[in-house]
Computed example of a mutant assay.
Amino acid sequence: MLENIILGLLMEGELSGYDIKKTIDSTIGMFYKASYGSLYPALGRLTSKGLVSVTELENSKNKKLYRILPSGKEMFLAWLAEPLQISLNEHLLKIFFYDYLDEETRQVRLNEYGVKLETEIRRMQAVEQIVTQELKQVEDPNSYYYRVSVLTYGSSHFQMSKQWIQNIKERK
């Protein structure tokens, strides 16, 4: 998965490993996490497979820029064209079995999860404000339609999840 994400980000242009991590954190970070410990080995694999090229900058110590190669673009587009998959979330699996927990522990965990959801909702609202301002400065905002739609999905998802947690806490 991470390799495909990297290829997708490189479709925009050359990036350093640091810039890739920063972009992941500020965009898809709401539903996908990547550490430097997983990012750099993935970049190495992509380079070894001939999907990405790397250029070491002379004016900066240890800074490398990665660029997608035609074979990488081909592989990324093939992955992108595959049918969408429905994946399971761990929290749903755990809640499915919550009948086995005592009521106090259930309520504590559901409250904790509700607080996490609130934090994500506030984060999404902040990102939405930034994106709204940035789209005002873009020549063709429609060229970012699908990216913005994922942001809208994230916001709606967290709101729905918050309501669902509240309902199950109250046994509605």
Rank of each mutant, 00 (worst) to 15 (best):
L57V: 07
A78T: 14
L15V: 01
K64H: 08
K21S: 11
Q107F: 07
S53T: 04
Y145T: 15
L57K: 02
Y32W: 07
S53I: 01
E134G: 09
D102K: 09
M75C: 12
V127I: 15
Q159F: 11
L92C: 08
N167M: 05
I121T: 08
L80T: 12
K22H: 14
W164T: 01
L101I: 04
I95E: 00
G114K: 09
K94A: 07
L117F: 09
H157D: 10
K73H: 07
F158G: 08
D140A: 15
K172T: 12
L101S: 05
Y100P: 05
T55Y: 08
P70D: 00
F96Q: 03
L110I: 13
K73M: 06
D140V: 15
T132Q: 10
K94W: 05
A34H: 00
A42S: 07
V150S: 12
E14T: 03
Y144N: 13
Y32G: 09
L65P: 04
Y146R: 15
S161I: 04
D102W: 03
D25N: 15
L69C: 02
K116T: 10
T47S: 07
W79P: 03
G37M: 04
S149L: 13
Q137V: 13
E112Y: 13
L7Q: 03
L57G: 03
E170P: 15
S156N: 12
E3W: 02
T55S: 10
N62S: 12
K172P: 03
G72H: 02
R45L: 04
W79E: 03
L93D: 00
W79S: 05
L151K: 06
N142I: 14
M75S: 10
K172E: 05
V150L: 06
D140G: 14
T47G: 00
R123Q: 05
N89D: 06
D19Q: 15
G50D: 00
M11E: 12
Q163D: 05
L92Y: 12
Q137Y: 10
E56R: 13
